[in-house]
């Protein structure tokens, strides 16, 4: 097997929600790859389809949402499976969820059940996929508990034997997120999806959690998809970046190129809106003009053109394809190529 073959490869993924008011195309033809052991950062404004894309990978889209098109190819030991073809409730999908692909959700407070102890919920996950610790042998609760205590220690929770019997609302925000990370790692996944894992916690704790994630990633060599709207976090965490807008990939590339030589006008606008320590004082921070369109009113053509400073007449007629742009990026913008996305 070739080492540079991707672990996860998403191709032309489309997810839509059939609401009473109309069809919302939350993800509209997204493609990207995740390499083994790579940290992929996904950025975009709220509502750009980042979270929906990640849920689609785990087949966790709730009705009335539906994957309408595309492939999600995931490489396992015994070959490649297309997750988009698996039934959400099938045994095959459940074998992958939690075991090979784990999720670190956004709000650690609400992501734990308040009436079960934290340890209880992690032990359950370990027992569900106990073969990942002891192939071919049943595991008892006490063994799973020992593993949980070990995991707690790994993620830096002090007094793990006591904390394991706590309820989530008895833990601080940082501890809760560490417990959540322990749960996600409990079955040694190949891919970790972290959905804005630090948005709901305060800045100091945020830094600790990020350091922890980086440390664990190096130790276990787990691939991570890191979703955030915080470009600063991306710069610290990711090696490769995907920029999304209204369910489409605008630009992707290695983190340095994205930050220092952005190609797409949207990426440029995003970067301009970061406050800088070295900027001039008393100058208004540039913002992206206009507002995110209402989901029922998707603009035709390139989704960004109504807000784009460099929009051309053809931008409202055709959708630009994601094409390689030298030196290292990919961008979907007619400023850089003429290719039209046919769909």
């Amino acid at each position: 097997m070739n080492a540079i073959e991707p672990l996860l490869s998403v191709r032309d993924l489309r997810v839509s929600f059939a609401l009473d008011e109309g069809l919302v195309r939350a993800v509209d033809g997204t493609s990207f790859d995740v390499m083994p052991g790579q940290v992929l950062g996904v950025v975009g404004e709220s509502g750009c389809g980042k979270s929906v894309t990640m849920r689609a990978i785990l087949q966790l889209i709730d009705r009335p949402g539906r994957i309408t098109n595309g492939e999600i190819r995931f490489r396992r030991d015994d070959g490649v499976v297309d997750l988009a073809r698996l039934e959400p409730r099938s045994a095959a999908m459940r074998d992958i969820r939690g075991a090979e692909i784990a999720l670190i959700p956004q709000e650690p407070m609400a992501a734990f059940s308040p009436v079960h102890t934290v340890g209880d919920q992690i032990v359950e996950a370990i027992l569900l996929h106990s073969h990942r610790w002891q192939p071919g042998k049943r595991m008892g609760r006490s063994e799973a508990r020992d593993i949980t205590v070990g995991l707690f220690r790994d993620v830096g929770i002090s007094m793990p034997e006591q904390r394991i019997d706590a309820y989530s609302w008895q833990l601080s925000g940082g501890l809760r997120q560490r417990a959540m990370i322990a749960m996600a790692l409990s079955c040694k996944p190949r891919l970790l999806i972290a959905d804005e894992p630090t948005t709901a916690i305060d800045v100091t704790t945020q830094a600790q959690v990020l350091a922890l994630l980086r440390d664990l990633q190096e130790r276990y060599n787990t691939a991570i998809i890191f979703i955030t709207h915080d470009l600063g976090v991306i710069a610290q965490m990711a090696s490769y970046v995907v920029v999304m807008y209204l369910g489409r990939v605008m630009e992707e590339g290695p983190v340095d190129d994205i930050f220092h030589a952005p190609k797409h006008p949207y990426t440029k606008a995003l970067l301009r809106s970061i406050p800088s320590l070295y900027g001039q004082t008393r100058v208004a921070l540039p913002v992206i003009s206009g507002a995110l369109p209402h989901p029922f009113n998707r603009p035709p053509g390139c989704p960004f053109h109504p807000r784009c400073p460099d929009a051309m007449p053809r931008c409202s007629d055709a959708v630009p394809k994601l094409m390689p742009v030298p030196p290292n990026q990919f961008a979907s913008c007619f400023l850089h190529h003429e290719e039209v996305d046919p769909a």
């Binding site: 029922f296 009113n297 998707r298 035709p300």
Partner: peptide, 11 residues
Amino acid sequence: MTAADIAVGKE
């Protein structure tokens, strides 16, 4: 979606 649809939605 046509421009007319957008106008209706906007209204």
